[in-house]
């Protein structure tokens, strides 16, 4: 049994049928990459898992329990952390308040304010700054730290490298590898293919709301046909 099992979900925005029967699994201590062009439903899949846009049909099991009908805050409290697209750091909250809010579920574990500051020393100098006063890289650190504060067992990361300088992206790669080492399951949506392939243990390619490829990231790296057909590269 996998930690996260998405089983044939169909998710809609109003009348648009975005996810048309997607199934996938994610395991502890592994990075599962979701790849695909823009607008194929990767973010919708993340939103379905966290409960923002619940699937109309199909099931989502987390640690063996169905979560597809639970409200988002309950899903989060059970151990699903979210690093959302666009980071969504709260502008009216200081860095420290953003992090403390992330710790709200009150799950015990290795992540505390102190360990987050150890991982992102730059945030220690910014504790009293408001979310709106941070650089893109700093916001990304807050978004990751905020998600870790709940001591999740599954981390959903949606385009974490978006808008970051190459040097920061390399830092992000090291961070993700370190998180994987702690036994965390990571579901990663990423446009930056080299980054995704460098950290992923398994990869799914989504096209038009369906999974069209599932396998070893190495295959995507070497198979030109898969790349051109589904990723447009």
């Amino acid at each position: 049994m996998s930690l996260l099992e998405v089983d044939d979900i169909h998710t809609y925005y109003e009348h648009s049928h975005i996810l048309q029967g997607v199934s996938l699994q994610a395991e502890s201590g592994r990075v599962t990459a979701l790849l695909g062009r823009n607008g194929v439903g990767k973010t919708t899949l993340i939103r379905s898992v966290i409960g923002f846009t619940p699937p109309r049909t199909g099931g989502i099991r987390f640690s063996g329990e169905s979560i597809e009908r639970l409200p988002s805050h309950t899903i989060a409290r059970r151990g699903v952390g979210l690093v959302p697209q666009g980071r969504r750091v709260f502008p009216s909250l200081t860095v420290e308040e953003n992090l403390r809010l992330g710790g709200l579920p009150g799950r015990a574990g290795r992540w505390t304010l102190e360990t987050v500051y150890t991982m992102f020393p730059r945030l220690r100098d910014r504790v009293a700054n408001y979310g709106g006063q941070l650089s893109g890289g700093e916001q990304q650190m807050v978004a990751i730290g905020r998600a870790l504060m709940s001591n999740p067992v599954l981390l959903l990361m949606d385009e974490p490298s978006e808008g970051l300088a190459p040097l920061i992206v390399r830092e992000l790669e090291r961070t993700m590898c370190a998180l994987k080492e702690t036994g965390l399951a990571i579901v990663l949506v990423e446009q930056n293919l080299p980054l995704a392939l460098a950290v992923a243990d398994t990869a799914y390619i989504i096209s038009k709301g369906r999974v069209v490829f599932h396998g070893d990231p190495q295959t995507i790296r070497t198979d030109d046909e898969v790349r051109t057909k589904y990723l447009g590269i």
Binding site: F52, A76, F90, L93, E97
Partner: peptide, 14 residues
């Protein structure tokens, strides 16, 4: 304050 900023994200954090 977090909910005023971004209600959905606040839900997503528990």
């Amino acid at each position: 304050r977090a909910s005023v900023d971004d209600e959905e994200m606040a839900r997503g954090l528990g």
